[in-house]
């Protein structure tokens, strides 16, 4: 059996974000989040709703990539206009990979640099304003570093966070629900003691061989340590078997630079 990869460890960590969410639409955007959501549905949270990533609800997660004989098990219909109904109704938990994240949990997918003359145009805000305001959100960061976790606010606030300066009287903020950030170094959460004071983000677990100091050094704002800060669990053989079945073309191997193993020496991963 080949070595367990960091991508596989992150898939298992990602799957945990959907535990005990109830009957919500689990949307994992990108290979690691999608495999995480699929693993969640096939293990601890069968009540989750998922789509075929096009327009139909499926009773079991669809394997990623070209399919030989697999036929999706359709159970319903969810074209984009109904996805918005779902988003606005709050029955969804999405995991996406933003370009920038700040200490309030605000995210950016639009432009890096000046808004009028950006250094780099990415995609646009896409659905981040609605997602972040209306339902549960988690994030994936395959390259944990200070260019992603920025010092001040993100350059263009696309997704909202727990930033009181961005909201005025009469604007409801109680539906904002940021959960976790899965990175290649650690798992972060938003469970700091007062999440609206710009210090909500905590290191919840460290991947094997990673120190808190290393994570802090790769983050341009101060992080808290969760009490009893633990090591991110390694995937079990059963989880690995499910992941392999869901990703028959091994697309997960191309998600992180050089596809590192889950067990790394601390000296080998300086950010």
């Amino acid at each position: 059996m080949s070595e367990i990869t960091l991508a596989e460890l992150m898939i298992v960590a990602a799957s945990e974000v959907w535990r005990d969410n109830g009957e919500v639409l689990a949307s994992g955007i990108g290979v690691i989040p999608r495999l995480g959501a699929s693993l969640a549905k096939l293990t601890h949270s069968p009540e989750l709703l998922m789509t075929d990533s096009e327009a139909y609800l499926v009773a079991e997660p669809v394997p990623i990539g070209p399919r030989a004989n697999y036929l999706p098990k359709y159970e319903g219909y969810l074209p984009f206009d109904r996805v918005f109904d779902c988003v606005w109704g709050g029955q969804r938990h999405v995991m996406i990979g933003p370009t920038q994240i700040d200490r309030w949990g605000q995210t950016n997918l639009s432009v890096v640099g000046d808004y009028a003359r950006p250094k780099s145009a990415i995609l646009g805000v896409r659905g981040l304003p609605g997602n972040s305001l209306c339902h549960i959100n988690s994030m994936i960061v395959p390259n944990h570093g200070p260019r992603v976790f920025v010092a001040g606010e993100v350059d263009m606030v696309s997704g909202v966070g727990y930033n009181p300066a961005r909201f005025s009287a009469g604007m409801r903020t109680d539906t904002i629900d940021l959960r976790r950030i899965i990175t290649d170094l650690c798992v972060l959460d938003f469970e700091g003691p007062d999440k609206w004071n710009g210090a909500a983000i905590r290191v919840r677990s460290l991947h094997p061989g990673v120190s808190f100091e290393q994570v802090q050094a790769a983050t341009a704002f101060p992080l808290r340590q969760a009490p009893g800060l633990a090591e991110t669990p390694m995937p079990t053989a059963a989880q690995l078997a499910i992941i392999a079945r869901l990703d028959p073309h091994n697309l997960r191997a191309a998600q992180l630079k050089n596809n590192p193993p889950a067990l790394r020496l601390a000296s080998g991963i300086a950010a």
Binding site: Y115, L133, V157, N163
Partner: peptide
């Protein structure tokens, strides 16, 4: 619509 509140979609 609620969406857009708190973001730079409004601010910009």
């Amino acid at each position: 619509i609620k969406v857009g509140l708190g973001t730079d979609v409004l601010a910009k």
